[in-house]
């Protein structure tokens, strides 16, 4: 699994882990994010069971196991958090922050040791070492209980499935040309996202934030102008295509 540092300051660092060459082609490719600050670290959307081994090995290149104090699951999907039963053994003292809506569901992945910290619908905040992070509501995009993670200092928005692209092989880490990237995103957003109202609310909410980088859970990361281009494109997009 590749790991790339996407932000670093005196207080904290963001690393994206993904493009796992060992994984089966039948499994959707995912981006996992590690934020480390001082002696603490959080994994955002730790991934599925199938990725656990390569994730663990890659993480240990950047942090010690005992530094990983926190996990975050944007929603309940298997590619997001089905590895929980294994992290529960590796990180028995960790806390999982995830939507309150999914607690009873996520516990099905196996959780004897890790503590579940519910995130309320309106969102919340968390500190990892010196990094202050915000949980931004992104309900119905696509999951009915869903959050993004915003880092006001790094100006990074971990956007979960929003901005996701389905590309084969190993695409580059960043979007280089927005227009040519649309074909990899359009079907995903039209089919997976159910609500135009939720989408428009989210766009308005994100426009109030300063975002230099938008980091989705699948595909390439949006940087600089690409973020605004995405917001404009997404605002215009009609979603919920299967209901037509």
């Amino acid at each position: 699994m590749k790991s790339t540092e996407i932000y670093s300051s005196t207080t904290h660092t963001w690393i994206v882990l993904g493009r796992d060459s060992q994984k089966s082609e039948k499994i959707i490719d995912t981006n996992q994010y590690l934020i480390k600050s001082n002696d603490e670290a959080i994994i955002l959307d730790p991934g599925g069971i199938e990725l656990f081994s390569s994730m663990l090995a890659s993480l240990l290149k950047h942090v010690k196991l005992e530094q990983i104090t926190t996990l975050f699951a944007s929603h309940q999907d298997p590619d997001i958090i089905s590895s929980l039963g294994l992290w529960d053994k590796a990180l028995p003292h960790a806390t999982l922050h995830a939507p309150w809506l999914w607690e009873g569901f996520i516990r099905h992945f196996g959780m004897d040791n890790i503590q579940y910290q519910s995130i309320k619908d309106e969102g919340g905040e968390i500190k990892i070492g010196k990094a202050a992070l915000k949980f931004i509501p992104a309900h119905y995009l696509h999951s009915s209980g869903n959050f993004n993670v915003y880092d006001p200092k790094a100006k990074i928005l971990m956007s979960g499935d929003i901005g996701a692209a389905l590309e084969k092989n190993e695409p580059p880490m960043f979007v280089e040309d927005f227009a040519s990237h649309i074909k990899h995103m359009e079907y995903f957003h039209r089919r997976w996202m159910p609500s135009n109202r939720a989408k428009n609310n989210w766009v308005a909410r994100i426009r109030e934030l300063e975002v230099d980088m938008m980091a989705p859970q699948h595909g390439r990361i949006f940087k600089g102008e690409m973020v605004q281009e995405f917001l404009e494109w997404f605002a215009r997009l009609d979603v919920g295509s299967a209901s037509d």
Binding site: I49, F52, S53, S54, L56, A57, S58, L60, K61, K64, L65, G85, L86, K89, A90, G110
Partner: peptide, 25 residues
Amino acid sequence: VRYSDFQLRLNIAAQYTEHTDIHHL
């Protein structure tokens, strides 16, 4: 079942890295 799966996944991780944390786990 869960511990045996955990062991199996750790053995795979050990093929990627010789980190002492893996050995400890």
